[in-house]
Design a protein around this nucleic acid. Structure first.
Lengths: 335, 335
DNA sequence: TTGAAAGCGCTAACAC
DNA sequence: GTGTTAGCGCTTTCAA
């Protein structure tokens, strides 16, 4: 059982003032200089801390934000969460991080839990959520911002990388280096960014009058496993000279396959992958990658959420953070 | 502002019973069958949820556990956290994850925050914490379990890998393959596991009558940067045929150096690193590694914490989880 | 088995 | 600027 510390009453008694005065001091109101000094001293001496349960009960606000993430071992997400935490902290908010393991029931459980804890807002990091699920929680009066996917017509905000442009730039880079047989490894349509990146890839080929071939589009689960299997298939096909890998963990899987098959990069095949995390630095040659700005994504998400909590905003805002190519040595010149 | 849902009063009114009866039902007490059915229906209809602030205020217990971690992008830690979360969940507890970015002030802030939130216990994942810091919080009445380091004479529990044995086994493996000039790249003494692993390395050399050479012991910051710099130095020295790298992120840094220097593994130098995370699978050849059981560590930590919260335990318990070698292809036979 | 009532620690409206 | 007080939603004691 937790030890119960001093209460506002104790502070008031020691200072010979009413609890209202102490409360006012605590909440930034004006008190006489003399009282201020006394109160501050008493707080220190008694090691007084406000009881969050009592305060929360009274004001029905917690200054807490929930963060709900598909997987807590996903470095792209944890990089963003680290930014979010820091950013919230400077605004006086703290955060509760929950993992869903990509299971909808668990996600709902965690969202319920957060609402019960009285969080003022929730940031969800996922590639895959439905309008219905969002609305269920929005209707319960909590502000929500979603990172890494967009759902139309929901009363919340969204932050994602400009996936289409990122994939477009990558594909274009292959084309400009003389590639025409360009493959893509990506996730299924239900994964928001997977679908968008495929769109960018298609659009670039279109713009350069290169036919889009179905047999160069490899789709599988949006993870290491899927990347591994897709790359193995791609190698069997022998139909391409370059491949865009549309997510970090798929790239990890692909690299495992590259090693097993003794493939030379970029001699045998050129690669661009999404996210310049560890892999792109550790692999030899260093991988050219599409970099998403985790800092910008995190900051934007917090900005949107807080303006929503303030009540100064509603409706559906969508922020697209630009992607940029980090050039390394995994692309062969074909001319 | 959050929408306020139905309260226990509403449920009582709808059911024509007192709030005491509803409360009893809520907390697993006995109520008449008829009332039970009514209450359950009313709860569903009103979408009633207990207010955690009110309950917490009353019982001064939250069924929440705080998790305080050096870095939330550290995959070794997040793997453990994922297990902990799951395990706590099955016991009816939920968790609040906080990141410290390895800064002591931030850690204290987060610990204060967690205490203010009324958590029933705290799990700290770190390589580096002082007895004083621990005691400060233990004295405030919260149960603490520390993962990844051990501090003597503190009234809390500790879970770590058997680092000494892990490093011993790795060093021994080098020796048995005919290596005698074996280096180690590790962190400074303040990092608990760094110091222990160095101890294991020394002990193995001792046991096989191989002299321990100071110029083969490379110590730097316990991260990517430190691994990178250490490996560069090691290469300049040209004094060894094998190296044990004592932490995952140091290994990532070392591999970046390996690539830059065009070093052949294991032709030029043999490597064993700690943790069989992504790197050891993605690098070619696959790296032989010392595997720590994140599952066992997480489960043990939760078990210890809950038994402490129950009050059924106190004192200082230390659990050592065995390490095991995952054999791959980064070691050259020297005979 | 049930209900009335006290009170957890705090905030805020109101009177001074 | 300060104090009095009601009441947030809940648990729990005590009496019925």
């Amino acid at each position: 059982m937790r030890i119960m510390g001093a209460t506002i009453k104790d502070v008031a008694r020691v200072c010979n003032v009413s609890i209202a005065t102490v409360s006012k001091y605590l909440n930034g109101g004006n008190v006489r200089e003399e009282n201020r000094i006394n109160i501050e001293r008493a707080i220190k001496e008694l090691d007084y801390r406000v009881n969050n349960f009592a305060r929360g009960l009274k004001i029905n606000r917690s200054m807490m934000v929930g963060i709900v993430v598909d997987s807590i071992t996903n470095m792209f997400y944890t990089s963003i969460i680290s930014i979010i935490e820091d950013c919230l902290h400077t605004k006086g908010y703290s955060s509760i991080i929950c993992e869903t393991r990509r299971q909808e029931e668990i996600r709902n459980e965690k969202l319920d839990f957060l609402l019960n804890k009285g969080v003022d807002g929730i940031i969800i990091l996922t590639t895959n959520i439905t309008k219905e699920q969002l609305e269920h929680y929005i209707n319960r009066g909590v502000s929500i911002v979603v990172i890494d996917c967009v759902v139309n017509e929901a009363d919340c905000d969204f932050v994602t990388t400009d996936n289409i442009s990122g994939a477009y730039q990558a594909t274009e880079m292959f084309i400009l280096k003389g590639h025409t047989k360009i493959a893509i490894i990506t996730g299924e349509d239900k994964e928001f960014s997977a679908a968008e990146r495929l769109k960018g890839y298609r659009r670039a080929l279109d713009d350069y009058d290169i036919p889009v071939c179905d047999h160069l589009i490899f789709r599988d689960s949006y993870d290491l496993e899927g990347g591994y299997k897709s790359f193995k298939k791609l190698v069997e096909n022998k139909g391409c000279t370059a491949v865009l890998i549309s997510n970090y963990y798929m790239a990890v899987g692909a690299v495992i396959a590259v090693n097993e098959e003794n493939i030379n990069i970029p001699g045998d095949i050129s690669i661009i992958c999404f996210d310049d995390l560890e892999l792109s630095k550790v692999f030899k040659p260093k991988l050219t990658s599409v970099s998403q700005s985790t800092a910008e994504i995190g900051n934007e998400a917090v900005k949107l959420l807080l303006s929503r909590i303030d009540g100064s905003n509603s409706g559906c805002r969508i922020v697209r953070v630009p992607a940029k190519i980090i050039v390394n040595n995994s692309i062969k010149k074909m001319y």
